[in-house]
């Protein structure tokens, strides 16, 4: 992996939480979330996503439950009340940041 690759990985790492929280208003299991995000242009490795979902749950931003209604048991994650509270703040922070960085890069 080149230095530039590492740098973009670091840059993306910070915004993954925001991306994930924004897509979990409706419950998703890991693989469906991965596909959903990829469809919207946000590619994320499963080795990154699955552990992240667990960590966000441990921090009280997500909640999860096993469901067996489909062809196999799957763990569904959705945003928790704690996550609902954090999301608008993160969104506002992101928007302000984009504006500032755009200004810097112009």
């Amino acid at each position: 992996m080149t230095n530039a690759d590492n740098l973009s990985l670091e840059l993306r790492r910070g915004v993954i939480i925001l991306a994930v929280l924004s897509q979990l208003k409706e419950a998703q299991y890991g693989y469906s979330l991965l596909k959903l995000m990829a469809e919207k242009g946000f590619e994320i490795e499963q080795g990154t996503l699955y552990p992240l979902l667990r960590r966000l749950e441990e921090r009280g931003l997500l909640q999860s439950e096993w469901q067996v209604d489909g062809s196999r048991p799957r763990r569904y994650y959705s945003i928790s009340p704690g996550g609902e509270k954090a999301l608008p703040k993160l969104k506002a922070e992101w928007k302000a940041l984009v504006k500032v960085i755009d200004g810097l890069l112009a």
């Binding site: 890991g30 499963q46 667990r54 096993w66 196999r72 763990r75």
Partner: peptide
């Protein structure tokens, strides 16, 4: 502590990936 739970999740993911 978390072994079985993570294993179940990986199993379910592998099967989803194969289906897909």
């Amino acid at each position: 502590k978390s072994r079985e739970d993570i294993q179940n999740e990986i199993r379910s993911t592998i099967e989803d990936m194969l289906d897909d």
